[in-house]
Write a protein that binds this DNA or RNA. Structure first.
Length: 363
DNA sequence: GGGCCTTTGAAGAGA
DNA sequence: TCTCTTCAAAGGCCC
């Protein structure tokens, strides 16, 4: 794991990453036993990738059939084969690689960028900004595997409520009275009431994770009449659409965001399914150090997200909640049993539901 | 217009 | 603790 490589300087939680890297560490131990070098490790990965391509998994076969049925690209498969034969190792070996190339990527998270605008990825690279670039200070600095001093429990959650880092202000200069100042009694408040009209966090910091309710999910929140009362549904439709807080991107997603344009340029592919297959192989072909950059960024992304939306849960964006027309903050989802964005006794939930409806009525 | 495909990783819930 | 499910991005394709 990258943190381990820094001499154990990272005590920042991210257990998931630790597990992932632990696996690689075990792999490395085996490699070391066989007197492998780091280069050999990369070769090993590449060979494994190639082997996986040769020995198509049942899944891959199924996908292939699906692809044929759906017209999924024989030509794309050719592209895939072609790309797989290319040297993957060149990605980070370009002279101009600044360390965090995707810091220059466009940003769907930018306040003025819409999800649709985000789709012009090829030409955005030189003008856009990384989601974190406006908030994180690392710019073009060399990657430091040793993360800043942050509480060890940053990535942990007690229930839905998250711990808030005091040190994140180093990353995101939260103004006094920012989200960290929100009292616990306010933490259950719906984001729509907290965020205001334009994806702007109360802190004044626009965050990428907030997207206008124009995506897939929000419309699904309003099209399930069979589970909700028509009156409620009608009322809901009249209400202004609430912004959706998206999940923070993981390491691979950040990698894809950066490399997608390059793959598209290299193989003239546009279908994301095919591109993602290529990117998946390249991801496995990356060295530990290369992957560590993205794990580190993803960790920071999660921290930022956690800091800005302490009460947010990944469950909030589950389609089931939207499908059944449930309030993300207060309603209990019977069909799938997922919980609202608060951990309270159901009776408290009912009280909050009533109070929230009173509030919305008064508004 | 909306869902599917395709990838990896994170998070949450249930067994 | 392990397994399963869902979502995050992307854009072409299909119904």
């Amino acid at each position: 794991m990258p943190q381990l490589s820094s001499g154990g300087g990272d005590d920042l939680g991210a257990n998931d990453e630790m597990i992932a890297f632990k696996d690689e560490g075990e792999q490395e131990e085996k490699i070391q036993e066989n007197a492998f070098t780091e280069r050999d490790l990369a070769d090993l990965k590449s060979s494994l990738v190639n082997e996986s391509e040769i020995n198509q998994s049942p899944n891959a076969v199924r996908r292939g059939h699906q692809g044929e049925q759906r017209g999924f690209p024989e030509k794309h498969r050719e592209h895939l084969d072609g790309v797989s034969k290319q040297q993957d190792g060149g990605m980070y070996k370009t002279p101009g690689y600044p360390g965090y190339p995707f810091l220059m990527l466009p940003d769907p998270y930018l306040p003025n960028s819409s999800p649709s605008s985000n789709k012009v990825s090829v030409v955005q690279q030189s003008h856009g900004m990384h989601p974190l670039s406006s908030l994180l200070p690392y710019g073009n600095e060399h990657f430091s595997p040793s993360p800043p001093h942050l509480p060890t429990d940053m990535s942990q959650k007690t229930g839905v409520h998250r711990h808030q880092s005091q040190d994140l202000s180093g990353y995101y200069s939260l103004p006094p009275g920012g989200v960290s100042q929100i009292s616990p009694s306010m933490s259950w408040f719906p984001h729509s009431l907290m965020l205001g009209p334009s994806s702007m966090h109360p802190t004044g910091i626009p965050h990428p994770a907030i997207v206008p309710p124009t995506g897939k999910q929000e419309h699904e929140q309003y099209d399930r009449g069979m589970y909700a009362k028509p009156q409620v549904e009608a009322k809901r439709e009249k209400e202004p659409k609430k912004p959706v807080i998206k999940k923070p991107l993981n390491a691979f997603m950040l990698y894809m965001k950066e490399m997608r344009a390059k793959v598209i340029a290299e193989c003239t592919l546009k279908e994301s399914a095919a591109i993602n297959q290529i990117l998946g192989r390249r991801w496995h072909a990356l060295t530990r150090e290369e992957q560590a950059k993205y794990y580190e960024l993803a960790r920071k992304e999660r921290q930022l997200h956690m800091q800005l939306y302490p009460t947010w849960s990944a469950r909030d964006n589950y389609k089931c909640r939207a499908r059944f027309g449930l309030n993300q903050q207060t309603d209990w989802c019977g069909p799938c049993r997922c919980v609202p964005n608060i951990h309270l006794h159901p009776l408290h939930s009912i009280a909050l539901l009533l109070s929230s409806k009173l509030i919305s009525a008064s508004i």
